[in-house]
Design a protein around this nucleic acid. Structure first.
Lengths: 124, 124
DNA sequence: TATTGACTTGGAGTTAGCTTCAGGTGATAA
DNA sequence: TTATCACCTGAAGCTAACTCCAAGTCAATA
């Protein structure tokens, strides 16, 4: 697949894909003899994984670390698993935080108009 | 309350509080005759609200808009409620997204070591 | 009264994560 | 073969959201 096709498939720009590769976020993508990127299925899976984790707010830095461990081979499997578990914990924490904010918003929204009117009457 | 006390209470820096005020994210904080900020309870409630919404990823721009509406008085109450409902919807969407990522991570983590070992054996 | 330390301002600097640009190369179609 | 794309690289530029700095002022203490 060309970079344009991958970009379209995962709703990223070609520039972002090249940027990810440059900073070591994607294992080196295979090239045609002419030097043009030709994404394999495995490359696509990496793109999918990275896009997914980025959407959850996992930092580019953390993902680079994960890819770097992957490149070093199987002796880093435990370290990689540890990283994944840390990411998981952060996501769980984030969900809890968002639920808290949601509760506060719902509390604020309950009878909002009536309360705000009263409140601003008092300020006169 | 002084800016340092408020900063400590809400775990923000004094610089961030001044920044928020400068860009219109906080209604103007009252001052001592000497020009030093003296946060009222109402000011603190704003800080608390803003910190809460920022932690949920609501942009500074959106919050500035909300504060601007608030300043214009009660005729903006419906508009403000609409903004709050939009923020709520975004947060709900974010929670759903995070739950999706969590599911993917859990799937990836299930039997991770065994699968990765097998997988990397195959690459030899 | 002098010192110390927290506070003030406007403006410049920083960080993450892209995004755009300039100048060039590869591939396909008339 | 020539035009027209999409693609390539390295480097500079951009945006959001702070964060830091310099130079000065206020307030409490010795």
């Amino acid at each position: 697949m060309t970079i344009a096709q991958v970009a379209k498939k995962y709703d990223l720009t070609a520039d972002t894909l090249r940027y990810y590769e440059r900073i070591g976020l994607l294992p080196e993508v295979t090239r045609t003899p002419g030097g043009i990127r030709d994404y394999s299925e495995s490359d696509c899976n990496w793109v999918s994984y990275i896009k997914c984790m980025r959407s959850a707010g996992v930092s580019v830095e953390t993902l680079v670390e994960y890819v770097a461990l992957f490149r070093q081979g199987k002796q880093t499997i435990p370290a990689r698993k540890k990283l994944l578990l840390e990411q998981r914990a952060q996501i769980v924490a984030k969900i809890e935080e968002l639920n808290g904010v949601l509760a506060r918003l719902d509390w604020k929204l309950d009878g909002y108009e009536e309360r705000m009117l009263k409140c601003e009457e008092n300020l006169k």
